[in-house]
């Protein structure tokens, strides 16, 4: 046969047009309202942290990839997204060197050492945050009550969850639920803008960028477990609504726990993952020394992802290989009619 000068490739011969960059850019688009809210309340300081965080994440990725002689993939936007997510859960006053250190550890140790995008067992932004949180000398920068002391925003600059931890439900009576919902609460640059995050999260769900099972079951987990605590003893534990509207729950449900690489992909695995994240959040809030537990819950549950991904119906396997004989054929017919 005479060969023509044409292209030959395996099936299928068409594509839906989806790209990896689409995921990252949708994330950034969905986070713009929360970023704007942070910039509105905390001014230049917030922009400074966001810019430094995105830049250092991208630089860290380019640097480690050029050292390891791998293709440089900062154009796919995944490093920018993890830099942005880290910035949004930090207070606006955090020193820039901390942002850079957290991003370098997150990107290099938690992401690129495991093989880059898709192969990382833990979300790099969360690892970066956890490094700051558990380092004794730096942990103070994440105390929102101290960090936001010099800002004038027009609402009470007390971190609701820290108040809950210190004073119990009696202390949080002066936080209006509507104020919390509209983002008038102390917290991270973007993580306190609950309404903006909800809008962005719903956008991501509708676009198919994130899988809806995870945020839905995350919020359900928070409501159910917080509800159990609250119904048993409402003088010691806050209501489920307060738990959803305060702290990192909204950013955790829609943006932190839904990272593709660190969440399961099978339906019941996703539901279990989200529910356990939510449950763990409330448990950590109630019984740990930390005021908020979302990030540690997400990190912990990410470690269970390979196990949760096994929650799937087993495939029916074809029979073992053996030579074909008429007996084998009639036997298989008998087995079928018997079953």
């Amino acid at each position: 046969m005479k060969a023509l000068d044409i292209t030959v490739s395996p099936a299928p011969h068409c594509h839906s047009g989806a790209r990896i960059t689409g995921v990252s850019y949708n994330f950034i688009l969905a986070l713009i309202p929360a970023m704007a809210m942070g910039a509105y309340y905390y001014g230049f300081d917030a922009i400074r942290v966001i810019a430094a965080s995105i830049a250092s994440a991208m630089i860290a990725e380019a640097l480690i990839q050029s050292v390891l002689r791998r293709p440089i993939t900062i154009a796919d936007g995944s490093a920018a997204v993890s830099g942005l997510l880290l910035a949004l859960i930090l207070p606006a006053s955090v020193p820039l060197y901390l942002v850079v250190v957290a991003n370098f550890i997150g990107i290099i140790v938690a992401k690129q050492c495991f093989g880059g995008l898709g192969a990382n067992p833990l979300n790099p932004a969360l690892v970066g945050w956890a490094v700051i949180r558990i380092t004794k000398a730096w942990a103070g920068y994440l105390d929102f009550d101290l960090a936001l002391i010099n800002y004038e925003t027009g609402f009470i600059l007390q971190y609701p969850l820290a108040v809950l931890k210190a004073e119990g439900p009696a202390g949080i009576a002066h936080f209006g639920l509507m104020d919390l919902f509209l983002g008038k609460q102390a917290g991270g640059i973007g993580s306190s803008a609950i309404l903006c995050l909800l809008v962005g999260g719903i956008y991501l769900v509708l676009r198919g960028t994130i899988r809806w099972e995870i945020p839905a079951s995350f919020l359900l987990g928070v409501v159910v477990i917080a509800g159990i605590f609250w119904l048993r003893n409402s003088s010691n534990y806050a209501s489920p609504i307060f738990h959803i509207l305060a702290g990192n729950v909204m950013i955790g449900a829609f943006f932190l726990s839904t990272d593709n690489a660190t969440s399961p992909v099978n339906r019941w695995g996703m539901v279990a993952f989200g529910f356990c994240c939510g449950a763990m959040t409330v448990v950590l809030r109630a019984w740990s020394v930390y005021p908020d537990g979302v990030i540690f819950a997400c990190l912990l549950m990410s470690l269970f992802v390979p196990l949760l991904d096994k929650m799937k119906k087993k495939q029916l396997l074809p029979p073992a290989v053996s030579p074909v004989t008429p007996q084998a054929i009639s036997e298989s017919a008998e087995v079928r009619s018997a079953s």
Partner: peptide, 19 residues
């Protein structure tokens, strides 16, 4: 030239090198 000739459909078919 550089185009594709596909037998048996775009989803499951195969591209051939000759007409």
């Amino acid at each position: 030239p550089k185009g594709k000739l596909i037998l048996n459909g775009i989803m499951r078919g195969y591209s051939c090198f000759s007409d």
